[in-house]
């Protein structure tokens, strides 16, 4: 099959850019460890409330400026362990998020950060986020979960404690 000279150049340029791009993405994923949230852990979706760590939702200190945030979702709320659905996180803290759902699929998105993952019944979702900037961030459901989907939210307050 005949290819025009310019077409060869065009495809060579395009394909090399593509290969370079995939290599960068791959190195970022497998060498630097920046993989999308892909936890393999499971949980019985009917027994979430009696299974650790989901029996005690909320923020727990687990190290020097390091925390675990356990979140249990259901239509149409985020249980973040507080009555007012506000979580206070010290500025600069590394937070390991562990979340799941008791019923349907939900989305877990902290707007303005890269914490963005799907929550599926029976599966545990995990992500780590460092909160470098002070301010209020909205935790919201970004996967349709029923009639009250858009009313499902909580608040993350990043506070300077120094």
């Amino acid at each position: 099959m005949h290819l025009h000279k310019y077409e060869k150049l065009w495809l060579a340029f395009g394909i090399s850019s593509l290969v370079l791009f995939l290599v960068i993405v791959g190195v970022n994923a497998f060498v630097a460890g920046n993989q999308p949230p892909s936890s393999a852990k499971t949980v019985d979706p009917g027994a979430v409330e009696v299974t650790a760590p989901f029996d005690q939702p909320g923020l727990k200190k687990i190290g020097d400026n390091e925390y675990q945030l356990v979140v249990v979702t259901s239509a149409f709320s985020f249980d973040v362990g507080t009555q007012d659905k506000v979580v206070e996180i010290p500025k600069g803290a590394t937070v390991h998020i562990v979340a799941t759902t008791k019923d349907v699929v939900h989305g877990f998105e902290i707007a303005g950060t890269n914490a963005n993952m799907m929550l599926e019944p029976g599966h545990i979702s995990e992500a780590t986020q460092v909160f470098r900037n002070e301010g209020e961030f909205t935790l919201l459901c970004n996967e349709y979960c029923g009639s009250g989907h858009h009313l499902m939210h909580a608040k993350i307050k990043v506070v300077d404690q120094s």
């Binding site: 892909s38 936890s39 393999a40 963005n116 929550l119 599926e120 599966h123 995990e126």
Partner: peptide, 9 residues
């Protein structure tokens, strides 16, 4: 399904 649990990266 990139941000879903249960699928190896």
């Amino acid at each position: 399904q990139l941000t879903e649990p249960g699928i190896d990266p």
